[in-house]
Nucleic acid binder design. Structure first.
Lengths: 204, 204, 204, 204
DNA sequence: GATGAATGAGGTTTCATTCAT
DNA sequence: CATGAATGAAACCTCATTCAT
């Protein structure tokens, strides 16, 4: 037989999560079986996945944690470097679209797991409430910008939900094989958002 | 025994599609097995589903067609009654949000099937290209509005994708059990869109 | 392929329970897998067992119910035909040993399931309390016999437990391939019991 | 980290056998997997069990040997100290019940292994023939007692089998959590046996 | 049209055991 | 001696689909 390859538990877990992301992105959540994940990772059997993850849901939660962590690491420092609330939101949009273009598989897999992974009782593991912290923070930045006179008055809940959704749309759009310029898409979306929120001037 | 109900083929197909929508909405795409659909429909055997639909994909395509048709019937006449391009888009937004609030299960099922149903080769049955006709038409209305001086200059592709996505976000938002006023949400989203596209005045 | 054989649900369930009994008796509880039961029954797949029984525990409970029912049908009428409490107990012993000799597989399977089948939490499905009703009744017959002067004084609990156990021992003994005369074994055991309980005379 | 304990091979084997006994007694033969045994023993890997025992059957045989040895050490000297055959049997009964009450886990594990452990060909590793030496010896004591006039005439085979079985019943009975007085149970069982075998007087 | 038993593939998970370190 | 990652078989169960009635 082929020689046994021995990895540290951490390295093997990473490899399995990566394979899971690729299978989900290429073949869909429903096709992400242990057999297909193992084959893509070159594992000798699905038993190895069960050895490293308590069950399938645990693997899927790891997929979410991994992608979320990667995105956070890319976007958060860029936001922290901004001076004004409106600049923070501008950077959030631009950096997000950049990340989506750079990691399309991760984003596809993330939303597939979020939309499909369920608890034994049938409820979504990551229901709509998973978005709340992000929405709350977006609304806070918007209110800060309004108070600072950078933005006009509008319903921050509707705006935050719409911005979050528009970014999801951007992820799909810049993942298309023929798409050429994600940076331009990000700039244009940020401009649209600035206009919608009544900003006086572009951030630098 | 309760008398076996013998329905016309068309009525039976409708009943099965309705049950499929409910199962998908309540328990998710992955749980939408023939067994569960048949149980919810009160059928005595999954064989009846196979009798009326060539295979599972055919049933799922019917789910999409049904929901899409219902939404079209609700929204299209309202758009057709408008005089100006910007008014058409305003009505599109408002009527869409109304429909989502009135038929949350249909919308959840629709997006679940769109995101998960695949062809035997693994490609999505309803890939991103399924949105193209709608996006093309939205862009056309936007360009008409720009030409008519109702809207300022902007990238209609980005705007159309973002509007479509914002409506998807609205569907999730107004489906939440504690959500109270979808009409207000639709108005506010339309206002936001008007501001983003530089409209001078609200449609009547 | 081989022609599909179609049985009524009831007949198929009986056939599967019978095969389960044989597998358990010949190869042990641990070897009583769906695959082996299906093979012995000539089924095309283990799926058929799952179709007819909710899960493995349900099949095993049916095994117990079946054997218990058979034994009850054999022994109970014989006991009911007796006039005195001591005669009832005598007949109980003799008829039981007869049944064990006639249906050795059933008895082996019964005690294998009783000793091994567990609930999900690890507790025995048929714990020691399953014997209580029988023990209580045996004690009642003994007390009646004591009151009628047919038996001397003794601890009815110890006697009932020991009698029940001695019958289990008899089941093993008369199941041995070289065993010749179960009727004699039953008579001798009844005689031993009569002596232990101080009976004055043999029942007719 | 806690310091890895490095035990002598013999001590380690004892520890593993002890854990196996506890797992079998608490969770049943079917649940006695290497994983569960290792966890209860605090071992970091099931590999250690494979290292110390040729295979699972070898471990189980050790379980039997251990418990059997313990029981033998407790009961045999008490029997050897008796003067008459009937006194030997009396002491056998009393000492056995005492041991069962003192070591209920061992007894449960012993009978679980005896009833379930099988050779590769499916035959019981410890079949009914395992009882033969004991039965033969019990019969010998009974015949000696008969010859000495201490007991009346009866079928020693039936009596030996029944006594052995009654002791098994006693083991279950005195293991029940609410059982209070095993000594009394032993005395009463011995009395019952004495009556069954026509003994004139109690041993001292 | 409808029923429900049968099929066979494929799902996750657990198991005893091996072996490089 | 001990560790723990890897292996491959086999377990139970669910699935979409077929087909005799």
């Amino acid at each position: 037989m082929s020689p046994r390859s021995r990895l540290s538990a951490e390295a093997r877990r990473r490899q399995i999560v990566d394979s899971a992301i690729e299978v989900i992105a290429h073949e869909g959540f429903g096709a992400a079986t242990f057999a297909r994940i193992a084959r893509r990772a070159g594992l000798s059997s699905t038993g190895l996945i069960s050895y490293h993850f308590a069950d399938k849901a645990a693997l899927m939660r790891e997929v979410v944690a991994r992608v979320f962590g990667k995105a956070f690491d890319h976007i958060r420092p860029r936001m922290d470097a901004q001076a004004s609330p409106s600049a923070v939101l501008h950077e959030f949009i631009v950096a997000s679209v950049e990340f989506y273009a750079a990691h399309p598989h991760d984003i596809v897999a993330l939303s597939a797991v979020r939309g499909n992974l369920r608890q034994p009782d049938g409820r979504l593991e990551f229901g709509p409430e998973i978005h709340e912290p992000e929405l709350v923070q977006l609304q806070q930045f918007m209110r800060d910008a309004q108070r600072a006179g950078e933005m006009t008055r509008f319903d921050t809940r509707v705006a935050a939900v719409s911005l979050r959704a528009a970014l999801d749309g951007a992820a799909r759009e810049v993942s298309r094989p023929d798409h050429t310029d994600p940076a331009r898409y990000g700039q244009e979306l940020a401009r649209l958002f600035a206009a919608a929120t009544g900003q006086k001037a572009e951030p630098p």
